[in-house]
Design a protein around this nucleic acid. Structure first.
Lengths: 96, 96
DNA sequence: AATATTTGGTTTATAAAATAAACTAGTTTA
DNA sequence: TAAACTAGTTTATTTTATAAACCAAATATT
């Protein structure tokens, strides 16, 4: 009846990050922090978890002379997100 | 962009319970435990949280001579569930 | 008829997660 | 050049979820 919800995605912030990255080529740390209304500390921790899981890639570079961390979703990340959506549906569809 | 997800509902087990109760008049403890594949201890704790929040009603009675705890969703519970669904959509709709 | 087992849970303890606070390194501004 | 800001990381704290231990009553077993 109810499918298991991938705990890595079933977190408000990580879900926001992945959802955001699903819609763009890439996004940098500051932009993600703004869009998700998260603190830098929390975001840093959650991005690292997503990276460890292989759901995103993190590239540390520079924009001008300032450091700039860029994130991109991976194929595995996309698949996990889509699977999560399917699992969630079991909580909202009538009966089944 | 991303709406806040009610933390009381953003929990796999509590979401399962509420989702289940949305579709039925009432359900007893054992049935809910089976359907959600949860342990009695965990379910007991989570039901109490939902009750405290006013999302469900819990009635302790007897079926024959055995105790039987029956749960029902409240109007507030329904509203919270529907609001949660709307909030979730912001994580899955393109752009917006 | 005593004793073991099962039912239907609750309470308490532990593990895991999210979040916040403190800190670092370098940069820009006054 | 000192203060304040940017862009984060690391560590500590709080919260949450989950599991383990427990309890009372009912039923089944020898």
């Amino acid at each position: 009846m109810f499918r298991v919800l991938n705990p890595l995605l079933h977190s408000e912030l990580r879900l926001g990050v992945v959802s955001l990255l699903m819609g763009v080529e890439e996004a940098d740390f500051t932009y993600i922090r703004e869009q998700t209304h998260s603190t830098a500390g929390n975001l840093s921790v959650q991005l690292e978890k997503l990276r460890t899981a292989g759901y995103i890639e993190i590239e540390k570079g520079f924009r001008g002379r300032k450091p700039c961390t860029t994130c991109r979703i991976t194929t595995a990340g996309r698949a996990a997100f889509e699977e999560y959506v399917e699992a969630l549906k079991t909580y909202f569809e009538k009966g089944k």
